[in-house]
């Protein structure tokens, strides 16, 4: 059995009386592309900061490739690259200087070839000698990614790397992260863009109110039976909805009806038959499978109840 890339056990973190993390247990295997989702203030960044050693846990343990982030922090940090959520930079230095210094912090003295490769891959070569202050927000974010990768870490944690970046850059960052994953890096991604997690991640954990409320593969999560949305439209006013279908109504107007179907219990054909039997004149139908966003909203709102 291989050592998990990330192993978190019974992790608690309190800020005064606020319990930010309430007993997180999580293992991420080597080579996984793991997505960590959750609403604002759910505890995602606290969890990432605890992994990076920026937050000291109140109790519990965190390991990177089998190395405890507190007791064996030097070894753990050598195997971890963190792209922070905030765009931070050192205004004294150029892009290349920042990357060379970061390499040195990780014990690497002759890292120019890899630094050049990173600059090229992240389209920063022409800005290599520019001061960090002169870069756009998107460029600074790409430098942050390069800084996290100077030591070729086995585990790469990206804390909302595409927050506030334009669509083109977001797509190019996705391609870059996917290429990192293909080359064997374990990727842990936190994001607000559920489309991002849906496109990229193999397995998804949803954290809310400091607890991991869901931990499943993307396929499992998408097929939880949350189902589909059936929209029925008519050119003439719709009659009353049959009693047995009323609990499925999401939205109803004079000419349109929206029903939520549970994937494993409801058949679209059967529902349409029941509507026709109730004298519905159906002119158009639409079936929309729940997105990860719908599942996310449903799960986190269940948690809030």
């Amino acid at each position: 059995m291989t050592t998990p890339a990330v192993s978190i056990q019974a992790l608690h973190k309190n800020f005064g009386s606020v319990q930010a993390l309430k007993g997180i247990d999580l293992e991420i295997e080597q080579g996984e592309f793991f997505g960590l989702l959750g609403p604002n203030g759910a505890g995602k960044s606290t969890l990432i900061n605890a992994l990076a050693g920026l937050t000291r846990p109140t109790s519990g343990s965190l390991k990177i490739m089998g190395h405890d982030v507190i007791t064996n922090y030097l070894e753990a940090r050598r195997r971890l690259g963190v792209v922070p959520q905030e765009v931070v930079f050192d205004p004294f230095f150029s892009v290349r200087e920042a990357l060379i210094f970061q390499s040195g912090y990780f014990g690497l003295t002759k890292n120019d070839l890899w630094v050049d490769e990173l600059l090229d891959t992240l389209r920063l070569t022409d800005k290599a000698d520019a001061n960090m202050r002169s870069l756009s927000g998107g460029m600074k974010r790409r430098v942050l990614i390069a800084q996290a990768l100077v030591h070729k870490p086995l585990v790469v944690v990206l804390d909302e790397p595409t927050a506030g970046v334009d669509v083109e850059l977001r797509k190019s960052l996705w391609r870059f992260v996917q290429s990192l994953h293909k080359s064997g890096h374990t990727i842990v991604l936190t994001t607000h863009y559920l489309e991002e997690a849906e496109t990229l991640c193999d397995r998804i954990g949803i954290i809310d109110h400091g607890k991991l409320i869901t931990l499943e593969s993307k396929q499992e999560l998408m097929s939880r039976g949350l189902g589909q949305k059936l929209t029925v439209s008519s050119n003439s006013p719709l009659p009353d909805v049959p009693t047995e279908l009323q609990r499925k109504i999401v939205n109803a107007s004079e000419f349109q009806l929206e029903l939520r179907l549970r994937r494993e219990q409801d058949s679209v054909i059967d529902i349409l038959d029941q509507l026709r039997a109730a004298n519905f004149q159906i002119d158009d139908i639409g079936v929309e499978t729940d997105s990860l966003e719908d599942i996310f909203v449903q799960l986190t709102s269940e948690q809030a109840l």
Binding site: G53, R77, D90, Y105
Partner: peptide, 17 residues
Amino acid sequence: QSKTLGNLLFILVAPIS
């Protein structure tokens, strides 16, 4: 300065004792 600008993070995540 490093604390205020947030770039102390680059040192805090590095394997420096």
